[in-house]
């Protein structure tokens, strides 16, 4: 189920440009790890290198090691597609497939990969995933309506249901609440808490209160100057980071002195 992630000396490039340098960290299973930092510090780039989405950008490349339960995902003979089935992702803006119904959206991971399942099994899976995403009660009467026809917050929970329906070990969330109103944000945060016992969750957020509310561990990313690569400045339990950080830069950031 939930797996731990080990990152060692990770350098991430866009073509020749070094965007993130020398990140090493351990992400514990069954916990929520928040990544915070100012805009452009590379935290989203880092997140996308954890499920090999980064390499979809032309000429992007990665050096270093990312291991999931000890297996290097950048090793030879590793298919990025297999990696992504183990590591789900939720994006900044809700992106349900517009041509599919709510039901089909949840089943998308199964249907699109061409796996064969019985109709009743898929029904089950859809219901369980939607229940896990705290969305079942709201949409059970309109499962076959378009996925784009519900509110933004519901769409984002639909995307989470879609992600967990393929049964990943890890969930990556890239600022999942930045396009949502406060009430929907609350619903997502509650959901993150509910999911924690079963998954390894990594969330990038701009919102420090959110990091403080939902995460067990927090990593702070920063960059020395514009054009310099982003680095992991400090990583510790969330309580520690927000009360007694070791680095001056972290303290400046969380007390709102810059960024």
């Amino acid at each position: 189920m939930a797996k731990h992630i080990q990152v060692k000396d990770l350098d991430i490039y866009y073509d020749e440009f070094l965007a993130v340098q020398g990140v090493s960290m351990t992400i514990e299973p069954r916990s929520v790890t928040a990544l915070i930092g100012p805009s452009g510090c590379g935290k989203s780039t880092f997140l996308r290198s954890l499920n090999r989405m980064h390499e979809l950008v032309p000429k992007a490349k990665v050096e270093g090691q990312v291991a999931i339960n000890g297996r290097d995902i950048y090793g030879n003979n590793v298919d990025p597609v297999d990696i992504r089935s183990e590591i789900g992702m939720v994006f900044q803006r809700p992106n349900p497939f517009p041509t599919m119904s709510i039901y089909e959206n949840v089943a998308a991971g199964i249907r699109l990969t061409g796996a064969r399942m019985k109709r009743s099994e898929i029904d089950d899976l859809v219901e369980r995933s939607l229940r896990s995403a705290n969305l079942w009660n709201e949409v059970k009467d309109r499962l076959h309506k378009p996925g784009g026809g519900i509110s933004g917050g519901q769409q984002q929970r639909l995307c989470i249901a879609r992600a967990i329906a393929v049964d990943p070990a890890v969930l990556l969330m890239d600022e999942p609440c930045s396009a949502l109103d406060p009430i929907s944000t609350q619903a997502i945060e509650d959901l993150i808490n509910d999911l924690k016992p079963d998954y390894t969750i990594v969330i990038v957020t701009h919102n420090m209160q959110q990091a403080a509310r939902v995460s067990d561990t927090t990593g702070f990313f920063n960059l020395a100057d514009v054009g310099q690569p982003g680095r992991l400045i400090e990583m510790d339990t969330t309580a520690k980071i927000f009360s007694a950080p070791r680095e001056q830069a972290t303290e400046d950031y969380i007390t709102g002195r810059f960024g």
Partner: peptide, 25 residues
């Protein structure tokens, strides 16, 4: 592009992503 990313993140191979998500859209 978000739809392509969503499909990739679900471990959908590129050709199925194109056939089942991009072209229908």
């Amino acid at each position: 592009n978000e739809l392509r990313e969503a499909a990739y993140a679900l471990a959908v191979p590129k050709w199925r992503m194109i056939l089942k998500v991009v072209i229908p859209t």
